[in-house]
Nucleic acid binder design. Structure first.
Lengths: 344, 344
DNA sequence: TGCGCTTGCTGAACCGGATAAGTATCGAGA
DNA sequence: TCTCGATACTTATCCGGTTCAGCAAGCGCA
């Protein structure tokens, strides 16, 4: 049961291969009646043009690559990726592009994967996530000439096209909010220190707190375990923070549990803010005050930008709206109430 | 900057295209010295054979398709998928196969996606997940002749190749454990009722409890919201259950919080068991007693089976080990202690 | 009536590899 | 010395589309 080819359709329709091709692609060169007849036959015998044969004629592969480089254990839990992928995917499939996915363990391997995909003509472009400081992938992609969108801050994207969101702004908003509540000892449990957005958040956090509150930043690997561990250490120090900002939601949930183990009430004794709002933030008790963003829309935007880039349009960096703080039950004035500070 | 082709390599090496092809594929027909020279030149100019051109000669696309059909909001949170994909992916990339991913909203759309992929020769096979009762996709895939592995129970897989795990066994083990602790009123907050594994779990749960405990099963859409809602309803009834088994971890976490809102202690007043162990189960307090499986290995096995099927090997169904119960802090004897029942 | 233009199609070349068939070279054996 | 066979290639064809050049028919118009 061989797959039907253009020749089968042509023979059945009594026309040449060329005519079928014109009919299929809506090009002039066939009459409407012939086109209809050809399409009907194609439909009937279930013919679809081979993507390989099309690609051979210089056409696009109509596929975008995404290699994700994170330790498996953090990947599974973080809603961020699935939402991002889901957004990318939605946009791609609307334009009948496919997404080629591969998980890798390090950047060297990721570069090798792209080198292969690009060399083999399997993909037309790539999406680069989890931008590192001095990221090896940026010069590699530049050298390959692989059309790429970087999901991350322009400062680290080199000549590649950045799609980003102002994390510094979100940090400032969060700190202002906590200050307004009266907090004066604020900790931040951050993610991997070599990620560009971690560095930017670190800096913004330090600047926002400087002179108005004691602050400390602890780096982790984003896992709940490290989040809980860091929380325990912070909370068992004599001058424990009255508020903790977590760089993702799984650590915030873990921190919530760690606080409870230590018999601390959230938000009575400790306020908790989670980055990346997700269903998880809403189902725990108390529901988490979180920095919300439409990750799926962000992914869709990245995909749109990449497709524009691929089709040769002239596109510039895209700045998505910054995360908005969504106050919920996990934040309140610190123990002892507001210490007389004014707002703003 | 055109991509180099086999012709470029041939010209530079001073040989014919045929020779380059033989050299590349390790076939006899070129001397070792020539082969080395050709490979060196290929490496130098960064040539890789176009996958499209290869596919045109009847070769495989070396790609496997996975269309995931779940509402976006449940997808993001459940670790299950990312772990499964990660396992599939690891196996595929070891054999330099790629994974083509698409998210769809319903089965009709999923079938359409596969029809296109298969018709266009983009994929060599497919992995079917979230098997439904009377699943439309099974006859569709059979009709297409698309080599497929079904991640789900053989009873619903038709003539497709099933890779499955005995959920009924896991249910029985869980119920036995809860009975041994002394529980006599057990609830189960299940997932979508049209999924084959939900039906199988439902049946096994009813059979295991029948005559020895009061039981009730509530169906949800797997989201934390519905899990929390169902938990509240169950716990506010006069004869509330002393133990609840949740069909996934996000609902278990939501249930944990719901119980806490109602001032019920876990595990003192209520025991909680989660299906699908994940980092999430360990970071909440108390850590959740969970049904653990190596999802990643399961995915890898599904991928291996599919690749065997694609290469025409004769493969039979694969039954993975059933989930093992991992007791943690969320389960204990019911209020009032063991009611004198003996173990076993 | 003849010219040029448009319409609707055909035939052939081409994309980049794989591969079967053909060929030149060389060494070994009769 | 001639043949045989292996070795190391080349040449040509094919895969399934796209696309360009060509061509016949029909039509408007001078």
């Amino acid at each position: 049961m061989r797959r039907p080819t253009i020749t089968d359709v042509a023979r059945q329709a009594g026309v040449s291969k060329g005519a079928v091709s014109y009919a299929l692609n809506g090009q002039p060169g066939v009459s409407e009646s012939t086109r209809a007849r050809i399409m009907a036959i194609a439909e009937e015998i279930g013919w679809r043009p081979s993507s390989a044969a099309r690609a051979l004629n210089g056409a696009r592969a109509r596929t975008v690559g995404l290699a994700v480089c994170r330790p498996a254990r953090t990947l599974g839990v973080e809603p961020f990726f699935m939402e991002l992928i889901s957004g990318i995917e939605g946009e791609l499939s609307d334009r009948s592009y496919a997404l080629l996915l591969q998980m890798v363990t390090d950047h060297e391997q990721e570069i090798a994967v792209y080198r292969r995909w690009w060399g083999e003509g399997r993909v037309d472009g790539a999406i680069l996530v989890d931008l590192n400081v001095d990221d090896l992938r940026v010069p590699a992609f530049e050298a390959l000439g692989l059309p790429s969108v970087v999901v991350g801050h322009p400062s680290g994207a080199g000549s590649l096209l950045p799609v980003w969101s102002d994390d510094a702004h979100a940090v400032r908003e969060t700190v202002r909010y906590l200050l307004a509540l009266g907090h004066r000892r604020i900790a931040r449990i951050a993610g991997l220190p070599h990620l560009v957005h971690t560095v930017l958040r670190d800096r913004a956090f330090a600047e926002a707190c400087d002179g108005v509150a004691e602050y400390v930043t602890v780096h982790t690997d984003y896992t709940g375990e490290e989040g809980a561990g860091a929380t325990r250490r912070l909370l068992s120090s004599p001058d424990r923070p009255t508020a903790i900002v977590y760089d993702n939601d799984i650590m915030a949930v873990a921190g919530l549990s760690a606080a409870r183990e230590l018999r601390l009430d959230v938000p009575g004794d400790l306020s908790v803010v989670a980055w990346n709002d997700s269903p998880l933030s809403r189902v725990v008790h108390p529901p988490l005050t979180a920095l919300s963003r439409d990750i799926s829309a962000y992914g869709a935007q990245a995909a749109r930008h990449l497709l524009s880039l691929i089709s040769g349009e002239d596109v510039g960096p895209y700045e998505d709206g910054a995360a908005r703080l969504t106050p919920r039950g996990s934040t309140a004035p610190p123990p002892g109430g507001r210490d007389g500070s004014s707002r703003g």
